[in-house]
Design a binder for these strands. Structure first.
Length: 266
DNA sequence: AATGGGACCTGCGCGC
DNA sequence: TGCGCGCAGGTCCCAT
């Protein structure tokens, strides 16, 4: 589900809603989502902790707690955080010092919760490439120069650049007029510059609209994100291109559904 | 190095 | 109505 804009939305709302509050209870309805430590330790060590800080690294949420530990959350495809929650779909619920519940939901059980001494040591986080916002055009050009791989899977590779997933990769490539199966190094300097610019613009607009609710993603409040109505290609196969009326195509790249306009994107 | 396939899971919508 | 199939905002692992 969530890519950088959705996780950023949740992060901002968590800051507003939860900073300084204490976790007074942990209710584990499905322990599968707790990757470490054991569910017993997880519950025991979280009880009484105060939420001191909330961070986002790419698609990962980090809640820094009193006592030094951090709760690290990767929502993967269907993870949700909802506050105040009603517990109906929750895999884990946290009771807070205001008496309200923070629900962690996850239909597919891919999501990962970890309680760690130092989130900086987590291998996945150490392996993250730079976020698009931290890249200058020349750096990005340099990074693409030696890459023969197809451009869409490349910009979704979290070790290459982080935060972009299947949906925003498709949208940014459409806006850049670049075919998703082009080899990275075949892009001209102009195209590389355009692509970085459009990745940043797409993510920024999506954040402004509080993310894209297609299926599962919701804001912390449980409301939908607004950005799906601005999608140009994602999920629109067979429908007319909003620029040229050509039918949007769907192909498979790197095992992921890939939507594009065969006329606009070359 | 790059690419494809499958795995992890649950549930929805579709065609028959 | 019911069944089987394809599909899903992510990531990892293995084979070629």
């Amino acid at each position: 589900m969530p890519e950088l804009p959705e996780v950023e939305t949740i992060k901002q709302e968590l800051v507003k809603a939860l900073l300084g509050k204490k976790i007074t209870g942990v209710f584990i309805h499905n322990p599968a989502v707790i990757r470490e430590p054991s569910p017993e330790k997880f519950k025991k060590e979280l009880g009484g902790a105060i939420i001191k800080n909330v961070l986002r690294k790419a698609k990962v949420l980090i809640l820094e707690l009193s006592g030094g530990k951090s709760l690290v959350i990767h929502l993967k495809m269907t993870g949700q955080l909802v506050y105040p929650g009603d517990g109906k779909k929750s895999r884990i619920s946290f009771r807070l010092s205001d008496g309200k519940m923070l629900d962690f939901n996850d239909q597919r059980l891919f999501a990962e919760l970890r309680l760690l001494d130092d989130w900086r040591n987590l291998k996945f986080i150490q392996g993250l490439g730079p976020e698009p916002f931290d890249l200058a055009p020349d750096q990005f050009k340099e990074m693409l120069a030696s890459k023969k791989t197809k451009i869409k899977p490349l910009i979704m590779d979290q070790a290459f650049i982080s935060g972009v997933g299947n949906l925003y990769a498709a949208e940014a490539l459409f806006r850049s007029r670049i075919h998703p199966a082009r080899s990275a190094q075949s892009l001209s300097d102009k195209e590389k510059e355009k692509l970085l610019k459009e990745i940043k613009a797409t993510l920024t607009e999506a954040i402004k609209h509080k993310g894209s609710s297609i299926d599962q993603y919701v804001q912390l409040s449980g409301r939908q994100g607004d950005y799906a109505k601005y999608h140009k290609v994602y999920g629109r196969q067979g429908k007319p291109c909003l620029v040229c009326k050509t039918q949007i195509k769907r192909i498979s790249l790197g095992g992921r559904g890939t939507y594009f306009c065969p006329k606009c994107q070359r």
